[in-house]
Amino acid sequence: MHSDTAPAVRSRTATEGPTPSAPTWDPQQYLRHAGHRTRPFVDLLARIPQLPGPAPRIADLGCGPGNVTVLLADRWADARITGYDLSPEMLQRATQEHAGPTPGGGSLDFRPGDIASWLPEEPYDLIVSNAALQWVPSHPGSFAAWINGLRPGGTFAFQIPGNFQAPSHNLLATLCESPRWRSRLAGHGARYNHLLEPAEYLARLTELGCEVEVWETVYYQMLTGPDPVLDWVKGTALRPVLTALGDDHEAVSAFLLQYRDLLRGAYPPGPRGTVFPFRRIFAIARKEK
């Protein structure tokens, strides 16, 4: 999703604590930082090579609220584009605001879809995923099927966050495992140990016979407003925690206060805002013609 959506939960033993919840998503909260969240997809989009033919067929896996899916129609005006997501909230927002014919003669629609098990139902010219595969522990195992579903010369492209060792995530994981919260939140703050490093993605995609480009970028984002890092993670990494705490407003408030204080120490504000480094990993794999 452009949205860090389409979650899949890894299996856990009884001693590890409760299984992390599938997050409930808040499109409005996610879109509060739409500018920063969109930039990596724009950078990915700029490096996707020419697609095999006119009126390309495109799948967007984890489309979220659709705000970046529409950028595909700007690049390929006559494309038939389908965005897939598990979140009803995100799909409703995407459909209401973006579905329908596109100015260049193409179309844009959105469908429920779990990218942990999604398979191409027809040949695609482009399969793309923006900030979604981190929720799917099994995603490298899907690469072969997705690339097999491309037309010759088609492209599979994705970008994922690579900041899971950053203070924002380490502090969240530590707090979830603390004595006060362990019984309710164990495992909810550390869900990303399945992600590969760039060299591993390069090797796997090259082994599938593709022409591959992989890179990483650290965006130094200037966030503004009160507790801006907390506001940022409320739209993404905090969603499983907030979902697990549910309607227990007292617990939600107590957890957020503790986490807020930790983030304030890790990301002190400056005179013009708070610097928030964010590492992203990118990959583009072009199928042989």
Rank of each mutant, 00 (worst) to 15 (best):
P20F: 02
S21G: 09
T24N: 03
W25P: 00
D26H: 06
P27L: 12
Q29S: 00
Q29P: 00
Q29L: 06
Y30H: 11
L31W: 08
L31D: 09
R32Q: 14
G35N: 03
T38F: 09
F41S: 09
V42I: 11
V42A: 15
D43L: 08
L44R: 07
I48L: 05
P49E: 07
A55W: 02
P56D: 00
P56H: 07
P56L: 05
R57W: 07
I58Q: 02
I58G: 00
A59L: 03
D60F: 00
C63I: 02
C63Q: 01
N67F: 08
T69V: 07
W76P: 02
A77Q: 14
D78R: 04
A79R: 07
D85L: 07
S87R: 12
P88G: 05
P88I: 00
E89R: 09
M90L: 10
L91W: 03
Q92W: 05
R93S: 08
T95S: 15
T95V: 01
Q96E: 15
Q96R: 15
E97M: 02
H98S: 01
P101T: 00
P103S: 03
G104K: 14
G105V: 01
G105A: 10
G105N: 04
G106L: 01
R111I: 01
R111A: 11
P112Y: 05
P112T: 07
G113K: 10
D114K: 04
I115G: 10
I115R: 06
A116K: 09
